[in-house]
Amino acid sequence: MSDPRFELTASPHLKGGATTRRIMWSVTGSLVPIVAAAAYFFGLSALLVIAAATAGAVLTERVFGTPGSLGDGSAAITGVLLGLCLPAGMPMWMAFLGGAFGIGFGKLIFGGLGQNVFNPALLGRAFLQAAFPTAITTWPAAGGSFTQLRGDNFALPLMRASSDAVTEATPLGLMKFEATSTPVGDLFMGSTAGSVGETAALLILLGGAYLAIKRYLDWRIPVAIFVTVAALSGILTAIDSTYPGPLFMLFSGGLMLGAVYMATDPVTSPVTRRGAWIFGVGVGALVVVIRVWGGLPEGVMYAILLMNAMVPFINQATQPRVFGRSGDGMVTA
């Protein structure tokens, strides 16, 4: 071991510096500006929700995970991402529960990092959506002072939040139920109602660009999602102008956060390049379908989870040809 000239190991012999640990902590780093923006728009409440979700995820990983698995940072990312897609006024105990569920049932039950089928953060959110449909659709208005709570964050565990916060419909909710559009500028900067981290499209794009340049995420997936959503909603608007336009579709709701940070989860997205394109197009198409024709105003979460389930098939269908074999896997020689 001490003599570098005589190292005997199995391949691969060339290794990059990108360990799981390093990638994960880079992703966490790129989330810092988004968390800061969340705190700017939704004040202390945003930080409380994110902290609670992260605590739930990290504690569950610590208690039930393999010893030392906390160090790779993936549990912390799951927690932060989950916190970012919750409303700021949510009671902390619910955020905690969501984090615990996401890690416990979204990841550990499959065997830990690398084994899970679904994105743990989104699974945690799906659980909260099904368990507490009212609390998760109570959107506090953006703005206000930092220390002013945006809801009953400190509701006792298992207890209902008292509802005296100032709430506001999300841009997608306004579009779906009242056919009112929101200026794209507001959407871009993030000063609208919504989940704590989904509103600032600009910062999410910057974080994504950083990770893509570092090659820590596959740029094909978000690009495919954006192009599909823009194209489909463009066609729909051209046919009937009451449908929301491409810019609105791109910058509203959780599309940015989902496309950049959730859909690109290396564990639950395809490994092949062609697969990444297929995956992205699928997510984009489902987002438009659910938003336009579905019963819910937002569909990013279910779109990604559904496509997560397709990943094994996509991987299988897009396997590159093995050298020396024809496309159907037969040996040609």
């Binding site: 099904a130 368990a131 449909p133 609390a135 298992l158 207890m159 209902r160 939040a161």
Partner: peptide, 20 residues
């Protein structure tokens, strides 16, 4: 059991709650 302020976990009385 928990008093009037309890926030029900709706998912538990829906079919997914059975599977969980």
């Amino acid at each position: 059991v928990f008093g009037a302020g309890f926030e029900p976990w709706i998912i538990m009385i829906l079919p997914p709650g059975g599977f969980l």
